[in-house]
Design a protein around this nucleic acid. Structure first.
Length: 495
DNA sequence: AGCACA
């Protein structure tokens, strides 16, 4: 696209310039489109279109030389066409000096595991469950499932989901993923069900940096560049560490992927099958209630037991839970959940308020800020627990919970969110600033957060017999229109 | 590959 294109001799004989020359543009290219094209890389100060005999060339002038270089290096290493013709498939590129590390290795980090597997659940919700169910029906060893969540694909999904969640429909919004490494870095093609969903994801995420708390401490900034791919339907041959087809649970699992890891990482089980619903953030995004790092959760319509572990799992999705205290009040169950910081609590509250732990309207959460800032947990039991105390056995104090779970994956997955994943919080300093990378819009707009579906925690005997494809998503019908829920992508949120 | 405008 730019004159300094894929010919190395040309690329390197030409001195860098703030002004880029573009050729082979669409005929009706406008200045506005040129600006859009250049905007992800910096400030476009001038454009000129309809250049050349064919009137299909143009100039883009950036405010800064580095911005021009950024655009050149991006497109020079991309096989994708530059023109942004909207489609249902996005090309996601992770930029940055350490971009490559974002792929597999990052996913082995403990604090990413939980989130990435969670995101996999969020995104694949229906299809992931189908997939897992299918694997179980084949009685594959559980170890074959362990590779799934810490693969790069869920990580990409995670990135896609953190900000863009509200705009995704509840089911099947990500159909397929392929990942690959190019000179541009780690890239993924992400296929959505339709162009609208893809556009929403793109708008929400393009130009954003991966939150610092999702990256290793020593890692440089990683920025997502998202363009539309010309693909409309990806061809995925295997479920593997490189590719997923969430629409086809019958696709064979690549043997290489099964052997990818022997570690007991999280699983793709449907534990916190997520659902996001936009919460009552005012126009100004502020709440009247004074914020606190301790949340007060009351549970309405408690048809099923809500245990300490269930609460811990639900609330750990947003950051390390330090303490939980459960008590009865007015005939209902309430709980105080303590995070290390206010931000995490805010995020959790926004995401969870008004949502049900179980599908079907059961165990609806009402969350407010507590006046407490530090809970005093006298003794660890089945109603209260201090997760920050070292040497406290982090084993599940309620094995009965696992016993009632309808399928064995839950037990494994539960460990993902158990205290062992979040030892004393100072070991996860990054988790304390969930908005560090994405900007303020990041976690503030989740429409709902990981919830447990009926598969996970409903007592087997009482659990309605639901096929994975029949999962109820209460509230889905009341979701606002996709575009309307989009957070504005403001330049100050980009990094 | 090509290159306008000030």
């Amino acid at each position: 696209m730019a004159s300094v294109s894929s010919q190395p001799q040309f690329r390197y004989t030409q001195p860098p310039s703030k002004v880029l020359h573009l050729r082979n543009l669409p005929w009706e290219c406008t200045e506005e489109e040129l600006i859009e094209l250049g905007k992800p890389f910096g400030k476009v100060v001038n454009t000129k279109c309809n250049v050349g005999a064919n009137r299909n060339q143009a100039f883009i002038e950036f405010a800064d030389l580095n911005q021009a270089i950024a655009m050149i290096s991006y497109y020079a290493s991309s096989s994708e066409p530059a023109q942004d013709v909207a489609g249902n498939v996005l090309l996601v590129t992770i930029e940055g000096t350490d971009a490559r590390l974002v792929s597999i290795d990052v996913l082995h980090l403990a604090h990413v595991k939980a989130i990435s597997s969670m995101a996999a659940l969020c995104i694949g919700r229906k299809s992931t469950c189908v997939f897992v169910s299918f694997l179980l029906s084949l009685t594959l060893p559980l170890s074959s499932l362990h590779f799934l969540p810490h693969l790069p694909i869920p990580n990409i999904l995670m990135l896609m989901v953190v900000l863009a969640f509200p705009v995704f429909s509840a089911f099947g919004f990500v159909h397929k993923i392929t990942t690959f490494e190019k000179t541009a870095g780690f890239q993924a093609l992400v296929q959505f069900s339709d162009t609208e969903t893809a556009s929403s994801a793109k708008n929400a995420l393009d130009g954003r940096s991966i939150p610092r708390y999702l990256l290793p401490e020593n890692m440089g900034q990683c920025t997502l560049r998202i363009t539309y791919s010309a693909h409309t339907d990806l061809s995925v041959k295997f479920q593997s560490h490189r590719s997923r087809d969430y629409t086809n649970p019958y696709l064979p699992v690549a043997p290489s992927a099964i052997d990818a890891s022997g570690q007991n990482h999280g699983t793709l089980e449907c534990v916190p099958c997520a659902k996001m619903q936009s919460e009552g953030v005012g126009i100004d995004g502020k709440k009247l209630e004074p914020e606190s790092n301790v949340l007060l959760a009351s549970i309405e319509n408690m048809q099923y037991a809500v245990t300490l572990d269930v609460l811990h799992m639900v609330f750990s999705a947003f950051g390390p839970v330090q303490k939980i205290a459960m008590f009865d009040k007015n005939g209902g169950l309430q709980a105080l959940i303590q995070y290390p910081d206010v931000q995490t609590a805010v995020v959790a509250k926004e995401a969870l308020e008004g949502h049900c732990i179980y599908d079907g309207g059961f165990c609806k959460l009402h969350i407010s800020y507590s006046r407490h800032t530090d809970l005093s947990i006298k003794v660890n039991n089945d109603r209260s627990k201090d997760y920050t105390i070292p040497n406290t056995p982090m084993v599940n104090p309620q094995p009965s919970l696992l016993g009632q779970q309808p399928h064995p994956m839950v037990g494994t997955a539960a460990h993902q969110y158990n205290g062992s994943q979040y030892p004393p919080t100072h070991q996860h300093p990054g988790m304390h600033q969930p908005s560090a990378g994405w900007g303020s819009a990041a976690p503030a707009i989740p429409q709902s957060m990981p919830m447990m579906n009926n598969h996970s925690y409903m007592p087997a005997g009482t659990m309605p017999q639901m096929g994975p494809g029949m999962m109820q998503m209460p509230g889905q019908g009341s979701m606002p229109p996709h575009i309307g829920t989009m957070p504005p992508t403001r330049p100050d949120q980009m990094q």
